[in-house]
Nucleic acid binder design. Structure first.
Ligand SMILES: [Mn+2]
Ligand SMILES: [Mn+2]
Ligand SMILES: [Zn+2]
Ligand SMILES: [Zn+2]
Lengths: 148, 148
DNA sequence: ACGTTAAATGAGAATATTTATCAACTGAGC
DNA sequence: GCTCAGTTGATAAATATTCTCATTTAACGT
């Protein structure tokens, strides 16, 4: 039930929330805190647990609602794992992609976008207009590589 | 309750199944048929409906089991949509990525891989070893672009 | 064709995941 | 402090996915 947590990530989130006329609630800031301090991607349940540790009782629906809001704001990204599960990772607004360790699910950002200079001509020829993309790299972090 | 469907995709699947010592059941071949004839990605429910139309009663669990097997075999790919939903698309083994229309969910393949020649040096420096990747492009097909 | 057998299926229960409702609560601006 | 739209927690409801097990069936050898 801490109450004083505040670092750049939290203020960053606050700024965006204010901009959009949304409230900076303790629950929302706690989600940011839990995500960015973990340094890895977390499941909804793990985030819920983390927030409960900080604030005490917290509704699971609030976590889902917060993650949805944050995803729209570009503050968090949803990741998709080969086993079908999902994770969420903190992500500062700009266009970044993620690289996740399939072992421990730590996340590394990579700001260079592989499709930045990709030529869509071959497919756009068929009348398709590309508007967005999702890229996720899988692999092993140093620690998990050793352990294996 | 048709019984005679058979085209290159079905035999392709049969071949892979035999190779792996797995059975070519009517249900499995029906899933291939439904997927590839639709030309777009389908939800589990849609696939289930399509298979039931062909074979009559069919268990939903069988659809899930089949999709899992096929994904492992590289015959189908699971797609992830921005709204959180999932779709499955037929996909002939080779390394292919997909481009989906967020309107009607039609799927276009694009064989050229954007990360083929991408330099992971910047991130591998941190000890991370890239082993796989997932790429999905979003946009609008010609028809959906007009309709909008 | 026939029998054998491991693999696969269908039914339905059991889980897991996600969304919807609504009364009560709270952050932000005045 | 007062107001009010935005937010939350509790809980139910809706979806989505996985499990179990008795029964069926494809593949193979005869
Ligand atoms: Mn997904
Ligand atoms: Mn690729
Ligand atoms: Zn790791
Ligand atoms: Zn379309």
């Amino acid at each position: 039930m801490l109450k004083d947590f505040e670092c750049t990530q939290e203020s960053y989130a606050k700024g965006i929330l204010r901009e959009k006329g949304l409230k900076s609630t303790a629950q929302r800031l706690a989600v940011v805190h839990v995500l960015h301090t973990s340094g890895k991607s977390l499941s909804v349940g793990e985030i819920h647990d983390g927030v409960k540790e900080m604030l005490g009782v917290t509704g699971l629906a609030t976590i889902y609602r917060t993650l949805e809001v944050f995803e729209d704001l570009g503050i968090v990204k949803r990741l998709h794992f080969p086993d079908g599960g999902h994770g969420y990772a903190f992500s500062q607004g700009e266009h970044v992609h993620h690289m996740v360790c399939v072992g421990c699910r730590v996340v590394f950002d990579f700001p260079e976008c592989p499709v930045e200079s990709f030529d869509y001509a071959s497919v756009e020829k068929q009348g398709f207009r590309v508007k967005d993309h999702f890229i996720q790299l899988f692999g092993q972090c140093g620690k998990c590589a050793e352990a294996a």
